[in-house]
Amino acid sequence: MWKYIVRRIISGLAVLLGVSVLTFSLTFFTPGDPARTILRKQMGGRSPSQAAIERFREANGLNDSIPVQYVNWVTDVMQGDLGASYHSETAVTTLIGQNLMPTVELAVAGLAVALVVAIPTGVISAVHKGGRLDYGSQVLALLGLSMPNFWLGYLLMLVFAVQLGVLPTHGFGTFGHLVLPAVTLGTGMAAVITRLLRSSMLEVLDEEYIQTARSKGLKERIVVYKHTLRNALIPVITIVGLQFGYLLNGAVIIEMVFQRPGLGSLLIDAIFARNYPVVQGLVLIVAVVFVVTNLLVDITYRYVDPRISLGGGGE
C-alpha cells in the first residue's frame, strides 16, 4: 500500500513537472512580446518606446534564455513563490486568492442547479425506461448541454433581467447575481449527470436488495427514492466532482458574459495580456488540484476495494 502511494506521488510530481514545462514553453513560443503588450495596456493603448520595453524586459528577467528563465521559475516555485504579475508586482498567489472564491461559488451553485435538474430527470428517466417520460426527460437534459453557453447566457439575461426585471444582468456579491451564471453553467452539466444517474439507477434497480425491498411490500416510491437514489448518486457525484477542468473551461465564458470575477476571467485576461507569471501559476495550481484529487480518489478506492488495481502495469 505505502509503496503504491509513494509511487503515485512520484508520478504525480512527474505530471506536474510535465505540465510546467509544457506551459512554460508554450507561453514563450506565443507571438506577441509581453513587454510591449503590457506596457501598451498600461498606457491606455499608446505604444511604448524601445527604451521602456528594454527596461521592462530587464526588470522582469525576460532577457535571459528560456531554460534559465524556467530554472529560475521552478526554483522560486519550490520555495512557494509563484512570482508576481507583470502588471504591478502583485503576487500571483494573491491574485489567485482573490479570484478563487467567486469561481468556487459559481461551481458549487452550478453543481446545485445541475443536481436539481438532473435528479428528477434521471430518476424519471430510469423508472420509466423506454417510455415517453424517459425520452422527454433525456431530451430536456440534453437541450441544456446543446446550447452554447454564451448564447444561453444572453437569452437568460434578456428574459429574466431585461424583460421580467427580476434578476441583475451582471456582477457579483448577492444571491441574485449568482442565479443566471449558475443556471447557465448548471444546465450544461445537468445532461452529463442525468445520463450517469440514469444508468447508475438502472444498475441499482437490478440489485438484489432492491428486489428484496420491493418484495417486502415497501411502497414503490420509497424504494426508488430512499434506497435506489441514494446508492445511485454516490458514483455519480464522485465522477462529477472530478470535473474541475470542465468547471474552469465553463467558467471562462460565463464569467466573461456576466462580468463576474474569477479564475476563468483571470486566466483569459492573463493569456491575452501575455502576463506569463499569472498564466503559469494558475495552470500549475489547476494541475496540482487535478493530480491531488485523482490521487485521493484512487487511494480511497484501493483502500475500500483492494481488488481494484489502478496503478497501471508493473504490479
Binding site: 456579491g173 448577492t174 444571491f175 441574485g176 454516490i234 457525484i237 483502500y303
Partner: peptide, 27 residues
C-alpha cells in the same frame, strides 16, 4: 468509507448553497 466521504461532500455543498442564498436575500 468511500460512500461516507461522498455523502459528506454533498451535504457540505448543499449547506454552502443554502448559506449563500440566505446571505444573498439579506443583501
Amino acid at each position: 468509507a468511500g460512500n461516507k466521504l461522498n455523502r459528506r461532500t454533498v451535504l457540505k455543498s448543499a449547506a454552502a448553497v443554502g448559506a449563500l442564498s440566505i446571505a444573498g436575500c439579506a443583501e
